[in-house]
Nucleic acid binder design. Structure first.
Lengths: 234, 234
DNA sequence: CGGACACTTGAATAGGGTCAAATTCTGTGG
DNA sequence: CCACAGAATTTGACCCTATTCAAGTGTCCG
């Protein structure tokens, strides 16, 4: 649906390219002029660049499979976009206004020292997690939110490159370290709604609640994952 | 990611303190053992440390003045918390389970090179913006969301250390670079609700819509800011 | 065993969503 | 400059989901 950044990026005069502004702290990059609506990164594509907004405003958005959209960031001048998870762009970046951005190859920004690298990678992962949370809070219904929350507690599954079940029975057990009220305050719900939806999932055979406090047995991880991403449950 | 039902490794020996793990990439820090519910950073306090979770799960939450809470991050093993804006913690960090964290003085993690510093500071600011967005999406009503969105387009105002009006008439004009439908997709609303609330704000005398597309005149920035933070409007 | 707290469940309500017009902009061409 | 087409926005009526308020039931821990 969307094309990668190479598709329609328009460069202006040759001497703009590789020119770096007066008091810039980042290394020289490639300066790009963008028209309104122009896309410079597409969700899920291999991430080659990080973009710094020199002028104008960009947005980063994510889509659910049924078309629901969450604009997870508004990126004004001086801010960055083009963050990635597992080497692929996390969200699509599009210009809201005419804009100028500096495109840095990701490798150019990679810190030399191990500490800096570790910090940066970790923060990038956390930024992506916050993008996902925004999508969940802004665009998902109560049951989807609860299912998404449960999937998040199973880090091995539910990601882009989910391996799928490695056994005939696709079940899992987990202990939730949050009370209903804490889950509610994480998902933007009330504790009653969390309780209702948790038990609704149980009634639908997706999970089993208990026996102990906070203990959940997931009967079919793949089905729960579908509920988390679509709200549906065929 | 989070404590599975079977996970139960618990170290308590005194010489664990100040010990740094085997293949750690960050410098030595001070190892802290936390009890469930223990708080290691309070929203708005001067930020001295960054914390890495070695074991257990922490949460980062923010409160509105009337007590509404949004848990903006769940922080499992290997992740960081204690991010700051303007030198003060952005959100409170509390242990959800018994946990071990490594506390690094912020200065120890400051990269030597200008590029690394710039990147890290910028990403930290963006993380804080995402925390604010989560609060808006999870815990604010439609009118508060729209007011919050408008305040965000006035970067000079509405922050912790807002200078307040510097003139007798506290007005401002701005051009919104988003359509109603884009605003809706940012705030987790429908475009009809955005339109209704925008005009409700106008009817209440807080803003004037138009005359051109996307043009808004804010009559009283401080009152709009109050609406953004409390939903109320006395 | 008892008291506190967490969780569940039910009934009524409200805040936004949905669907369906009407109206206002904006750009285009005559 | 004006007329028109298409799009964005506003407005209205109705509906649905999640909240609110209120009991109840369980579970943990002394």
């Amino acid at each position: 649906m969307f094309s990668g950044m190479s598709a329609g990026v328009r460069r202006t005069r040759a001497d703009d390219v590789f020119e770096t502004g007066p008091d810039r702290t980042l290394p020289a990059g490639q300066k790009l002029k963008l028209a309104r609506r122009q896309t410079i990164a597409a969700d899920g594509e291999p991430a080659t660049s990080v973009f710094e907004v020199l002028d104008g405003v960009l947005m980063v958005y994510k889509l659910l499979s049924d078309g629901r959209r969450q604009i997870v960031e508004l990126v004004p001048q001086g801010w960055l976009c083009g963050f990635a998870k597992d080497g692929r762009y996390d969200g699509s970046c599009e210009a809201l206004t005419r804009a100028t951005v500096m495109a840095y190859p990701r490798s150019d920004l990679e810190p030399k020292d191990a500490v800096g690298r570790r910090l940066l990678h970790q923060m990038e992962e956390q930024v992506c997690a916050l993008h996902d949370l925004s999508m969940t809070l802004g665009r998902k219904g109560a049951q989807e939110k609860v299912a998404t929350f449960l999937m998040r507690l199973l880090p091995a599954r539910g990601r882009e490159n989910c391996p799928g079940p490695d056994r005939p029975r696709d079940d899992a057990e987990l202990r939730i370290p949050l009370s209903r009220s804490e889950i509610a305050d994480h998902l933007g719900l009330t504790l009653e709604t969390v309780s209702r939806e948790m038990n609704a999932l149980a009634r639908q055979g997706l999970i089993k609640v208990g026996p102990g406090r906070g203990e959940i047995a997931i009967s079919d991880v793949c089905r729960l994952c579908t509920t988390a991403r679509t709200g549906r449950n065929e």
